[in-house]
């Protein structure tokens, strides 16, 4: 049975238009033009226990709004959803004890105090036994290599260190369902990788169900076997990441490194030349022609290395939204 079940979920907002400037402000006091914005429009899906699912789509696509409804932050306009058998927006304690949400752009930690003080508050909120609390904190500290910074005020930590502490704060009660909204936003590549590795390990060891929204496609590629592409509030694709890539990208990229210089014109017969320098080229080759072209390249040129890759996931997403 699915741990997350969503049926025809819809969320619309009412906002008011206002013309710019002083006159516009005066007019808006008298009469305002109502605008109905559809943030999420009739989305349905199921997620099984232990799945790590990526929500991808451009800004304003409806990813975060969906997560907020599944967290119980927002009431939907229509539709139904259950998470672990609970209707999230009923905000039942039994549901809240088993789930957590991390919003990458919002702090849950007390800004001017060391993270440890926020952890202590969560210990009381989730009634974590003292012994267990200490054990988990030690484990998290070691796993994320951050334990030595638990006593430093949060406002003195780097963005990466802060995000690690935010994650610990959210995971201390070992939730069965975790929603992550842009957890690596603004982080350097080293911190991004550390967070990714940690999440992967945590998902595997605890069997937690995780939904991740991220603009960093490396996050999605590294962590999610299944992706949901959301655009204009609707679900555009739901399935394995691999299948999405194959269905959208009818070609692959062959990057060849030569031992001696090769002219661009000599490569045109093999496919579209995307990038070229005298000793390296990247060719855009139709998926079905890849084996033949690779063989021909090896026969015709002095090749030091040959790499066949799917096109970048960012490009795949761009293609989806172009369609």
């Amino acid at each position: 049975m699915a741990i997350i079940n969503v049926q025809h979920l819809t969320k619309t907002y009412v906002s008011y238009k206002k013309e710019p400037g002083f006159l516009g402000t005066l007019k808006s006091i008298g009469r305002r033009e109502k605008k109905i914005v559809s943030a999420v429009n009739d989305i349905s899906f199921q997620i099984e226990e232990g799945e790590f699912v990526g929500f991808i789509g451009p800004n304003g696509a409806g990813k975060t709004t969906t997560l907020k409804m599944l967290s119980g932050i927002l009431w939907p306009t229509s539709g139904e959803a259950t998470v672990m058998g609970h209707v999230p927006w009923k905000r039942e304690a039994r549901f809240q004890r088993n789930f957590a949400i991390v919003l990458g752009q919002k702090n849950q930690l007390w800004w001017d105090l060391p993270a440890h003080d926020s952890f202590l508050l969560n210990k009381e909120i989730y009634e974590i036994p003292e012994k267990e609390f200490k054990k988990r904190l030690k484990q998290f500290g070691e796993l994320l290599n951050i334990g030595h910074l638990f006593t430093v005020p949060v406002n003195r930590l780097s963005l990466g260190e802060r995000m690690k502490c935010e994650l610990i704060n959210a995971l201390l009660h070992e939730p069965k369902v975790l929603f992550l909204d842009e957890p690596t936003i603004g982080l350097d590549v080293v911190s991004q990788k550390a967070i990714r590795d940690f999440l992967k390990k945590w998902n595997k060891e605890h069997g937690a169900t995780i939904i991740l929204t991220s603009h960093a496609m490396a996050d999605v590629e590294a962590l999610c076997e299944r992706v949901m592409v959301i655009g204009d509030g609707t679900l555009k694709y739901d399935g394995p990441l691999e299948k999405l890539v194959q269905s959208v990208a009818d070609h692959k990229e062959i990057t060849v490194t030569f031992t001696e210089p090769v002219r661009r014109d000599d490569l045109k017969a093999f496919g579209r030349v995307d990038r070229h320098s005298s000793l390296q080229t990247t060719l855009h080759v139709s998926r079905k022609d890849v084996p033949v072209v690779a063989k021909q390249l090896l026969e015709k040129f002095a090749v030091a290395d040959l790499l066949i890759e799917e096109i970048a996931i960012d490009e795949v997403i761009r293609q989806v939204f172009k369609q």
Binding site: G72, I73, A93, R94, Q96, A100, I101, L103, N122, I125
Partner: peptide, 12 residues
């Protein structure tokens, strides 16, 4: 600022 979000997700 949307900070109230976090008041709604914990069992308190």
């Amino acid at each position: 600022r949307g900070k109230f979000d976090m008041f709604l997700v914990q069992p308190v």
